[in-house]
């Protein structure tokens, strides 16, 4: 059984699992990054201060924005690469003829 992208049920399962794994990896890195940027290393109080809460709020928003931007960038770069590769292949084919 294959769907539109030609992936079987098993393959879809693998992709879904990988996606979850990578999402959790991203989350882990984000937590670390925002911890570093927002919390001063003096734990006088167990309560998050107002400032810290606001900082974490913005930090998560910004992290996700950076993630999104880099994702788009990577996609566009890989598309450019593919186009260049195709062009090169076409050129070599034309030369061979």
């Amino acid at each position: 059984m294959a769907n539109v992208q030609g992936l079987s049920q098993d393959q879809l399962q693998i992709v879904a699992e990988l996606e979850i794994e990578m999402m959790s990896d991203m989350y882990h890195r984000m937590t670390n990054g925002c911890f570093k940027k927002c919390l001063p290393l003096k734990f006088r109080d167990s309560e998050l201060t107002k400032g810290e809460s606001v900082c974490v709020d913005r930090c998560v928003a910004k992290y996700l924005e950076v993630h999104d931007r880099i994702g788009k960038k990577l996609t566009s770069m890989s598309m450019q690469d593919e186009a260049a590769m195709k062009q090169m292949q076409a050129n070599t084919n034309a030369m061979a003829k």
Binding site: K36, C38, D57, A61, K62, Y63, V66, H67, R69
Partner: peptide, 17 residues
Amino acid sequence: TERCFGVCVADLGTRRL
């Protein structure tokens, strides 16, 4: 993302980049 966020985002006074 981790690396570029760490290097590039210094100001958490704003919500957007």
